[in-house]
């Protein structure tokens, strides 16, 4: 086992390299910041609670699109009984018209690139 030192040294270098982003942020003092979102709307609440929307908006949108496109059912009844037109452009974006400060901020933070905007038209103005 003459190679033991080389192997262990190699492993340590490897570990340092793959954990580099963590060290870098800790040393730089930028560790774990949360993106700040802006909402320009008079509404107090989204179609469902903030907690639910934060965790499940993608599933909700997925259900909406299947319902509208495939079943021709276009009205969503929220938990509180309110009814909404199931439409990304016409319902969601009426309040969240600031895509760059809302959608993109979070999506960029978690490194996801949803393909919604390849087809659905982003609201004018606050584009990124």
């Amino acid at each position: 086992m003459n190679n033991r030192i080389i192997i262990i040294a190699g492993l340590i270098i490897f570990l340092c390299l793959i954990t580099f982003p963590i060290w870098y942020n800790v040393v730089g003092g930028k560790a774990a910041y949360a993106p700040e979102l802006k909402i320009v709307s008079e509404e107090k609440q989204c179609v469902e609670s903030t907690k639910y929307m934060r965790a499940k908006h993608m599933q909700l949108l997925n259900d909406w699109r299947n319902s509208v496109v495939r079943e021709d059912k276009r009205t969503y009844t929220a938990l509180d009984g309110k009814k909404y037109d199931m439409s990304l452009s016409n319902t969601c974006l009426k309040c969240h018209s600031n895509k760059a400060d809302f959608c993109d901020k979070c999506h960029n933070y978690v490194e996801v690139t949803p393909t919604c905007w390849n087809c659905h038209v982003a609201p004018e103005g606050n584009k990124l």
Partner: peptide, 20 residues
């Protein structure tokens, strides 16, 4: 662009939808 209707993306087929 009509903002009320989506455009399409590259790589999909499209056709008349009878204005559903």
């Amino acid at each position: 662009i009509n903002p009320d209707f989506p455009t399409r993306t590259k790589g999909v087929v499209e056709k008349c939808n009878f204005c559903e």
